[in-house]
């Protein structure tokens, strides 16, 4: 196929050569996929695993269960080596991606406002390779902070009031799957350059024989194709409430899924769980997306953002 469609998009100042991004925590830090395809030549952007100022161990095993109907549930709990460890291990590789035209989004995690501040300061100082940051205020798997930091418009805005003054680079905020219009508006007002949604949906899976959770924690985050329709609806609601761009996330496994996100109002689209069970899916999704855009008779994919009619 000779493409006549321009695929480049701008996610709040992060200029991507195509709309495809990766969902934090489902893509390692990119290097794990180098055996499957040329990461730097393929993606519009990569979003790295959430990283805090200091290393976190994450939650005990088991952290994963498969659910019937195309879904999984995880309670990893942001296991990460801290900003210094992350930069030491992956900095050179990520700079290489950046040099090759793939934008690098580093994800900031914290348990408290102070921890978000520390992590942002460290990233600012140590990560020149970051094209922008994604602030995770929606992890359902950590005891304090995490999702609570994004539970209300006020709490979400408070995190932004700490992070925003510390960096001139674009800041994306990763949102939890609830009240997305209201919280999205609060984040836009407090200086977010873009929003990404949705994070996993809190769920439970009980082993009825032992009466215990199938994971080490009682609740965990549901992801995968089963949540796609919910995610599309939330992207649409949020897009109708804000003027900043959105990165659509949730159960994307095909070009058609990505196209739905774009029609619902997403500027960029992240592939998450599908990377785990189908590690070569990204290049295929990109081809399918381009074919769809071509078939829609547009010359620029931006014409299709929010083009859902109702």
């Amino acid at each position: 196929m000779v493409s006549t469609v321009s695929m480049a998009v701008d996610l709040g100042g992060i200029r991507m050569r195509n709309p495809l991004n990766t969902a934090s925590g489902t893509y390692g830090n990119g290097v794990q996929f180098e055996g499957f395809y040329d990461v730097g030549a393929t993606l519009g952007a990569i979003t790295c695993k959430g990283v805090a100022a200091v290393p976190w161990d994450g939650n005990p095993a088991p952290r994963l269960a498969e659910l019937p109907g195309s879904a999984i549930m995880n309670s990893v709990g942001l296991q990460n080596p801290g900003v210094r460890g992350f930069v030491e291990r992956y900095g050179d590789y990520l700079q290489g991606l950046r040099d090759r035209g793939c934008q690098v989004i580093c994800q900031i995690a914290g348990h408290s406002l102070d921890e978000y501040r520390q992590a942002t300061e460290l990233f600012e100082e140590l990560a020149p390779f970051a094209s922008g940051f994604e602030v995770n205020i929606s992890c359902p798997n950590i005891a304090q902070g995490g999702a609570a930091m994004g539970a209300t418009p006020e709490a979400a805005a408070q995190v932004m009031s700490v992070v925003r003054p510390l960096t001139a680079r674009p800041v994306v905020v990763k949102m939890a799957p609830h009240d997305v219009a209201e919280i999205g508006r609060a984040l836009e007002a407090s200086g977010a350059d873009a929003l990404s949604l949705i994070n996993t949906i809190p769920g439970m899976a009980i082993d009825i024989r032992t009466r215990r959770s199938r994971l080490a924690r009682a609740t965990a985050g549901v992801s995968g194709p089963a949540i796609h329709a919910i995610a599309v609806r939330m992207v649409w609601e949020c897009a109708n409430a804000v003027t900043i761009p959105i990165c659509g996330i949730g159960g994307v496994a095909s070009g058609a899924d990505a196209a739905e996100m774009i029609l619902a109002g997403a500027t960029a689209v992240s592939v998450g769980t599908a990377n785990l069970y189908d590690p070569t899916c990204v290049p295929r999704i990109l081809v399918e997306l381009e074919e769809w855009a071509c078939g829609q008779g547009v010359s620029d994919i931006n014409e299709l953002i929010g083009a859902f009619e109702c």
Partner: peptide, 17 residues
Amino acid sequence: ERMMGCGFGACSCCNVA
């Protein structure tokens, strides 16, 4: 043995203490 999401280090689901 652990439940595995990917098998190649992308998800951190297969932790061993």
